[in-house]
Design a binder for these strands. Structure first.
Lengths: 138, 138
DNA sequence: ATAGGGTCTCTAGTAACTAGAGGTTCAAGA
DNA sequence: TCTTGAACCTCTAGTTACTAGAGACCCTAT
């Protein structure tokens, strides 16, 4: 059994965040000492690692809740879990696509006036003001 | 002179968002009719288009504020504006990199069990629980 | 026994909006 | 000119996923 601070160190999840996850129902209510402090065991550690990992992958708290529920009622869980992961994957792919467009535009914009000379009008500001300069819609 | 609804239609920025931008100081306080309704002109339209475009590119409200201030005091503005754009570009590139890693992991996870048969243990849940299955740190 | 670091709860703040309540104004048609 | 209803007004509160702070209490090592 170890304290919340210890759990925090091992999982790299901050202490208030752990309490927040408990409030949100992602973590079960922790056991307490007689002095009301939370104590955790290996199961708690694993559960929190799972959550942390899923958050790192961009799953929302809500999605993680579903995943955890599936874990606890494992009848037909795999398909739904796969669905959740795939929709997460769609999101990620859409974000990448969008960001690549932005990268293009931004690199064009930033290159505008870092040499000498062209200080009369700022190319950055002009580019932002005039959407027509963009290659694509966004 | 046109109403906030009209401005909203033309810029595709929602009405409450326009008011929010005014509160935040991104937009100057709008002129009002005798009945206290906001009225805008071409300058207002251009300013909001600028903001919208910059937001689309992922600039924070704070960054946009700086950009607007530079616009209004154009002495040496170009270098700072370029700096802001470049740091934005760095952010975008970092996000792309990170998302690509996630994409790989997620596509590996989702492929785990969409065939038949393997329903005993859910690969999605197992993958999320065990970070060691990942190719890289994240 | 006591010191000080860790922990407790609770409230409020963050970014960038969005939604709703309750009331007022504008513009078009009768 | 009057009326009606859509659009507008302000203000408060809610969203997501936390983070920060206040003030009080606990735990452990010396």
């Amino acid at each position: 059994m170890f304290s919340i601070g210890e759990l925090s160190k091992r999982t790299k999840v901050k202490v208030p965040t752990i309490r927040y996850y408990e409030d949100m129902g992602l973590l079960p209510e922790a056991e307490r000492t007689s002095g009301n402090q939370r104590r955790y065991d290996k199961a708690g550690l694993e559960r929190l690692s799972f959550i942390r990992h899923a958050r790192d992958l961009g799953f929302s708290i809500e999605a993680i809740s579903s995943l955890i529920e599936l874990q606890e009622h494992p009848d037909r869980s795999c398909e739904t879990a796969t669905d959740i992961a795939m929709s997460q994957l769609d999101d990620v792919r859409a974000k990448i696509k969008r960001l690549k467009t932005l990268e293009k535009e931004l690199s064009r914009i930033s290159k505008g006036c870092d040499g000498e000379g062209v200080s009369e009008d700022c190319y950055v500001l002009a580019s932002l003001a005039d959407h027509n300069l963009c290659d694509r819609e966004h």
